[in-house]
Amino acid sequence: MPSSTVPDAPRGTRPDQEHFVAALEDTPVAPLDKLDESQKARSTWSDAWQAMRRRPTFWISSALILLVALVAIFPGLFASAQPNDGCELGNSNGGPEAGHPLGFTFQGCDIYARVIFGTQASVTVGILATVLVTIVGIVVGALAGYYGGFLDAIVSRIGDIFFAVPTVLGAIVLLSVLPDRTPVTIALVMSIFAWPQIARIMRGAVLTASNSDYVTASVALGVSKFTILVRHVLPNAIAPVIVIATVSLGTFIVAEATLSFLGIGLGEGIMSWGNDIGDAQSTIRTAPQVLLYPAAALSVTVLSFLMLGDVVRDALDPQARARR
Rank of each mutant, 00 (worst) to 15 (best):
S4P: 00
P101G: 02
A239P: 05
D8R: 14
I244V: 06
G137A: 01
I284Q: 10
R42L: 10
A41V: 14
I65Y: 05
S248E: 07
R114T: 10
T283W: 01
L24K: 13
R14S: 01
R323T: 10
A121H: 01
N236P: 00
T5H: 10
V290F: 05
P179G: 09
S3A: 14
A217L: 11
E18H: 14
R114Y: 06
F226P: 00
S61E: 12
P294I: 01
S304H: 07
I186M: 08
D180E: 15
V155N: 08
G90D: 08
V29H: 08
V206W: 03
L35Y: 11
T27R: 07
P83S: 00
G95S: 04
G137C: 01
I277F: 04
K225E: 14
L66G: 06
Q319T: 15
P101R: 01
L70P: 00
D180A: 14
L229K: 12
G222R: 12
Q197S: 12
G95M: 03
A220E: 08
T13Y: 13
G250L: 03
I158C: 14
G90Y: 15
F20Y: 15
S80D: 13
W273D: 08
Q82T: 10
G250E: 02
A121K: 00
A220W: 13
I277T: 02
V123S: 03
V29I: 13
T119P: 04
A295C: 03
Y147I: 05
F78T: 10
P101E: 00
F117I: 07
I138G: 01
W273I: 04
E88I: 05
T130C: 04
V123L: 12
V215W: 07
P166N: 09
D317H: 05
A237C: 06
I154L: 11
R55N: 14
D279R: 12
G170F: 07
V247K: 11
T57M: 04
T208E: 15
G94S: 01
I161C: 13
R11W: 12
P7R: 09
I127Y: 02
V68P: 00
N91T: 06
F20A: 13
D276W: 00
D314T: 12
V241H: 04
L102Y: 04
A79F: 05
K40V: 15
R285L: 09
S92V: 12
S92Y: 09
F252M: 07
P28L: 10
L308W: 03
T251G: 15
G265E: 04
L178E: 12
T119S: 14
L64D: 04
V68A: 09
L143V: 11
D36L: 13
P101D: 00
R323G: 08
G148P: 11
V6G: 02
P294R: 01
M307Q: 05
D310Y: 05
G126M: 11
S4C: 10
E37A: 11
T227C: 08
F78Q: 05
I186C: 07
I270S: 13
T182C: 07
V247H: 12
A205R: 11
L174C: 14
A217M: 09
I253V: 08
A194K: 10
S61H: 12
G86T: 05
V123G: 03
D213T: 08
P240Q: 00
A164W: 01
A51D: 12
T167M: 03
I244C: 01
S248F: 09
T13E: 08
